[in-house]
Simulated assay, not measured.
Amino acid sequence: MTTETASPQIARKATDLAQVHDVPVRVSAVLGRARMEVGDLVNLGKGSVVELDRKVGEPVDIVVNNRLVARGEVVLVEDRLGVTMTEIVKQNAG
Protein backbone atom coordinates (compact mmCIF):
# COMPACT_ATOMS: atom_id res chain seq x y z
CA MET A 1 0.00 0.00 0.00
CA THR A 2 1.47 3.37 -0.96
CA THR A 3 1.13 6.62 0.89
CA GLU A 4 -0.97 7.99 -1.97
CA THR A 5 -3.64 5.30 -1.53
CA ALA A 6 -3.61 5.53 2.28
CA SER A 7 -3.77 9.33 2.47
CA PRO A 8 -7.45 9.87 1.61
CA GLN A 9 -8.47 7.26 4.19
CA ILE A 10 -6.35 8.87 6.91
CA ALA A 11 -7.60 12.33 5.96
CA ARG A 12 -11.21 11.14 6.15
CA LYS A 13 -10.71 9.70 9.65
CA ALA A 14 -9.18 12.98 10.82
CA THR A 15 -12.10 14.91 9.30
CA ASP A 16 -14.64 12.61 10.98
CA LEU A 17 -12.91 13.03 14.32
CA ALA A 18 -12.79 16.83 13.95
CA GLN A 19 -16.59 16.86 14.19
CA VAL A 20 -16.44 15.79 17.84
CA HIS A 21 -13.48 17.88 19.04
CA ASP A 22 -15.76 20.31 20.89
CA VAL A 23 -17.87 17.65 22.65
CA PRO A 24 -17.26 17.89 26.42
CA VAL A 25 -16.41 14.72 28.35
CA ARG A 26 -15.84 14.12 32.06
CA VAL A 27 -12.38 12.72 32.80
CA SER A 28 -11.59 11.34 36.27
CA ALA A 29 -8.56 9.72 37.83
CA VAL A 30 -9.68 7.20 40.43
CA LEU A 31 -7.07 6.73 43.14
CA GLY A 32 -9.05 3.99 44.85
CA ARG A 33 -12.33 3.18 46.51
CA ALA A 34 -13.55 2.62 50.06
CA ARG A 35 -16.74 1.25 51.59
CA MET A 36 -18.04 2.62 54.83
CA GLU A 37 -21.25 2.99 56.72
CA VAL A 38 -23.07 6.32 56.74
CA GLY A 39 -22.40 6.69 60.47
CA ASP A 40 -18.66 6.43 59.87
CA LEU A 41 -18.89 8.83 56.94
CA VAL A 42 -20.61 11.58 58.93
CA ASN A 43 -17.99 11.23 61.69
CA LEU A 44 -15.15 12.09 59.31
CA GLY A 45 -13.51 15.40 60.01
CA LYS A 46 -10.47 17.41 59.08
CA GLY A 47 -7.41 15.17 59.26
CA SER A 48 -9.41 11.93 58.98
CA VAL A 49 -7.84 9.23 56.85
CA VAL A 50 -9.92 6.99 54.60
CA GLU A 51 -8.11 3.81 53.61
CA LEU A 52 -8.51 3.00 49.92
CA ASP A 53 -8.42 -0.38 48.19
CA ARG A 54 -5.19 0.45 46.33
CA LYS A 55 -1.58 0.20 47.44
CA VAL A 56 1.03 2.91 46.98
CA GLY A 57 2.53 2.60 43.51
CA GLU A 58 -0.46 0.81 41.96
CA PRO A 59 -1.81 2.44 38.81
CA VAL A 60 -4.83 4.74 39.04
CA ASP A 61 -7.86 4.25 36.79
CA ILE A 62 -8.52 6.90 34.14
CA VAL A 63 -12.25 7.08 33.51
CA VAL A 64 -14.00 9.01 30.72
CA ASN A 65 -17.76 9.47 31.09
CA ASN A 66 -17.92 6.67 33.68
CA ARG A 67 -16.03 4.23 31.43
CA LEU A 68 -12.56 2.89 32.23
CA VAL A 69 -10.29 3.79 29.31
CA ALA A 70 -6.75 3.70 30.71
CA ARG A 71 -4.51 3.30 33.73
CA GLY A 72 -1.75 5.63 34.77
CA GLU A 73 0.53 7.07 37.39
CA VAL A 74 0.10 10.17 39.52
CA VAL A 75 2.66 12.86 38.69
CA LEU A 76 3.43 16.33 39.99
CA VAL A 77 3.23 19.14 37.42
CA GLU A 78 4.59 22.30 39.04
CA ASP A 79 2.28 22.60 42.07
CA ARG A 80 -0.58 20.46 40.74
CA LEU A 81 -1.27 16.74 40.53
CA GLY A 82 -1.62 15.10 37.14
CA VAL A 83 -1.89 11.62 35.69
CA THR A 84 0.26 10.14 32.97
CA MET A 85 -1.26 7.27 30.97
CA THR A 86 0.73 4.06 31.08
CA GLU A 87 -1.82 1.60 29.66
CA ILE A 88 -4.87 1.85 27.40
CA VAL A 89 -7.66 -0.49 28.52
CA LYS A 90 -9.34 -2.32 25.65
CA GLN A 91 -13.04 -2.94 26.13
CA ASN A 92 -14.76 -6.10 24.92
CA ALA A 93 -17.16 -5.53 22.02
CA GLY A 94 -19.83 -7.68 23.74
Rank of each mutant, 00 (worst) to 15 (best):
A11L: 12
R12M: 12
R12L: 15
A14Y: 07
T15C: 13
T15W: 15
T15M: 15
T15R: 15
D16M: 13
D16N: 15
D16E: 15
L17R: 13
A18P: 08
A18N: 15
A18T: 11
Q19R: 15
V20D: 12
V20H: 11
H21M: 15
H21R: 15
H21L: 15
D22Q: 14
D22E: 15
V23N: 09
V23E: 12
P24C: 09
V25L: 13
R26I: 11
R26G: 06
R26T: 13
R26M: 14
R26D: 13
R26Q: 15
V27S: 05
V27W: 07
V27N: 10
V27D: 09
V27F: 05
V27Y: 10
S28Q: 14
S28H: 05
S28K: 12
S28T: 12
A29T: 06
A29V: 11
A29H: 03
L31G: 03
L31K: 10
G32I: 01
R33K: 11
R33D: 03
R33Q: 05
R33T: 04
A34Y: 00
A34P: 01
R35C: 11
R35Y: 08
M36L: 12
M36T: 06
E37L: 12
E37S: 10
E37V: 11
V38A: 14
V38M: 14
V38H: 13
G39P: 14
D40R: 11
D40F: 00
L41P: 00
N43Y: 01
N43L: 06
L44I: 04
L44Q: 03
G45D: 03
G45S: 01
K46I: 04
K46D: 06
G47S: 06
G47L: 06
G47T: 01
S48D: 02
V49F: 00
V50S: 00
V50M: 00
V50L: 01
V50G: 00
E51H: 07
L52N: 03
L52Q: 01
L52V: 04
D53A: 04
D53E: 09
R54Q: 11
V56P: 08
V56W: 00
V56Y: 01
E58G: 04
E58A: 06
E58C: 01
P59A: 10
V60K: 05
V60A: 07
I62R: 09
I62C: 06
V63K: 04
N65R: 07
N65E: 14
N65Y: 06
N66I: 05
N66V: 03
N66K: 11
R67D: 10
A70Y: 01
R71F: 02
R71I: 01
R71S: 05
G72I: 03
G72V: 02
E73L: 09
E73G: 04
E73M: 08
L76V: 12
L76I: 07
L76R: 10
V77D: 12
V77L: 15
E78P: 03
E78S: 09
E78Q: 09
D79H: 13
D79M: 14
R80N: 14
L81Y: 12
L81G: 10
G82Y: 02
G82M: 02
G82D: 02
V83A: 08
V83G: 05
T84M: 13
T84Q: 12
T84Y: 02
M85K: 14
T86V: 07
I88A: 03
V89T: 06
V89C: 08
